[in-house]
Design a protein around this nucleic acid. Structure first.
Length: 427
RNA sequence: GGAGAGAUGACGGAGCUGGUCGAACGUGCCUGACUCGAAAUCAGGUGUACCCUCCGGGGUACCGGGGGUUCGAAUCCCCCUCUCUCCGCCA
């Protein structure tokens, strides 16, 4: 969430940002609730001060008359405090909910726009393959080589689940280990995170665990959710703590499963592995000092590029427009891989995403820093995808299919897979 | 899953027959004295957040979290979470 005083003092800027982000929210209500809250707190503190004074006055021995008078006064104070407190608590609930709908501010260079077409392409890498045969999409390739089984998964688990089999199963393991090795070489701490997190952590990160439009599975009779990304468990790792600035930046590489409800997400781009209920992902997460976050954001992007260059997958880099940023991101870059099976003759499809959330998540999660001079503030938090396995598999299968129907494995990955081709010699 | 014990400041650890408790004592840390310097010793200081301020200071909250009892709660009651020990089960 944004700092409430910032919202109050920078009303015009926040309003413009909300407009750029295509969010429908009432900032004046937030400001008014904030001011009501502050004045109530002031009144309550004054009443409490009088209550404490009253209690102190009653410590020693005294005549029953005087004592009874003080007790009477104390009772009245207690009553009015309770009254005011209940008003305060309902105002704070409203304020919290209202403030939550205000998105982070946006980087001045982020393209202003409302839909995917307004995203700005920064550059392309690699060569989009041209085939002298009719390329198959990953669903067909998966079936042909007995790699992916959607039908059985549908019976056992439901739609949009899948079994990875044979080389595809090994490919998942190879991809995660490959990504981990790259991250370790960049100073990240390899981490396997829980796949479940508490609701308040989800909310702190900026996810909405409840409601119709939620993409999150919640666990019945608990305040637990299946995580949609390790961003949740990595960002929650230091929730409610004060980090010495000397320890920053903290870089974590988290391996987890990701679960997404994807309710109502059917459509042409939901075929196959592209949009599924469960997938495996290696996520980068960084806690840093505010002045470092812009630089580290570029660093995360370059690591994502390194990973996909190593995989020889052609991609383009996109600077996400304001309307597509989501609540917490100040700026967001996506890598879109070339997917030959997409649309009639191939198209770009998102494979990674890296966000600088500045202090937006840190404020609600209570992650602060203290520097050598004792100055304190909220850390900046960043996240980025190293490998989302299901989508990486799409890119590999579709880009590296060959005229004989086999699929080449990029050489950097071969040490991890143990094979350099899928489906050679008519298998 | 069953039985029990516990959660206090940077750490250890009192308090827990309700008021003198933001909290003893010890360690650590900071400042000063002693010293050529250090160690040891001695003296003083040392939490966080928010609010007000005539900038001297003043107020409120915080003893795992939430609720209750009371004029007054770290202290009493209830619920939750977590940790530890024992038993059961299991990878």
């Amino acid at each position: 969430m944004l700092d409430l005083r910032f919202i109050q003092d920078h009303r015009e800027e926040v309003i413009e940002n909300i407009r750029n982000r295509q969010v429908d929210t009432d900032i004046d209500r937030v400001i008014s609730l904030y001011q009501q809250r502050n004045s109530l707190i002031h009144d309550i503190e004054e009443l409490r001060s009088r209550r404490n004074e009253n209690a102190r006055a009653m410590k020693g021995k005294m005549e029953p008359d005087k004592r009874n008078r003080l007790i009477e006064e104390g009772k009245q104070l207690k009553e009015s405090i309770a009254e005011q407190e209940s008003v305060l608590s309902s105002i704070e609930t409203e304020l919290n909910e209202a403030a939550y709908t205000i998105p982070n501010m946006s980087h001045p260079d982020a393209p202003v726009g409302s839909e995917e077409g307004d995203n700005r392409e920064l550059r392309q890498w690699g060569t989009v393959p041209s085939f002298n045969f009719k390329p198959l999409d990953h669903v067909e390739l998966g079936e042909k080589h007995d790699l992916i089984d959607f039908d059985t998964a549908a019976r056992v688990s439901g739609a949009k689940f899948y079994y990875l089999k044979n080389e595809a199963a090994l490919l998942e393991i190879a991809l995660t280990r490959y990504a981990m090795d790259v991250l370790v070489s960049h100073g990240f701490t390899p981490t396997v995170t829980p796949d479940i997190a508490r609701e308040d952590i989800l909310v702190g990160i900026g996810f909405n665990p409840r409601g119709e439009e939620s993409n999150i599975y919640t666990i019945e009779d608990s305040d637990n959710c299946l995580i949609g990304t390790a961003e949740i468990t990595l960002g929650g790792y230091h929730a409610g703590t004060m980090l010495e600035s000397g320890r920053l930046p903290i870089r974590m590489a988290g391996l987890s499963h990701c679960f997404r409800r994807e309710a109502g997400a059917a459509g042409k781009y939901s075929r196959g592995l592209y949009r599924v209920h469960q997938f495996t992902k290696v996520e980068m997460f960084v806690y840093c000092m505010p002045e470092e976050s812009a630089r580290i954001h570029e660093e995360l992007l370059s690591i994502e590029e390194e990973i996909f260059q190593g995989l020889e997958v052609p991609y383009r880099v996109v600077d996400t427009c304001t309307g597509d940023l989501g609540g917490p991101a100040y700026r967001k870059y996506d890598l879109e891989a070339w997917m030959p099976g997409r649309d009639e003759s191939g198209n770009w499809g998102e494979i990674t995403s890296t966000s600088n959330t500045t202090d937006y998540q840190a404020r609600r999660l209570g992650v602060r820093y203290k520097d050598a001079d004792g100055n304190k503030g909220y850390v900046h938090m960043l996240n980025g995808t190293a490998i989302a396995v299901s989508r990486a598999i799409i890119a590999i299968l579709e880009n590296f299919q060959q005229a004989d129907g086999s699929i080449r494995i990029p050489s950097k990955l071969v040490p991890y897979t143990g094979f350099d081709v899928i489906g050679k010699s008519g298998s």
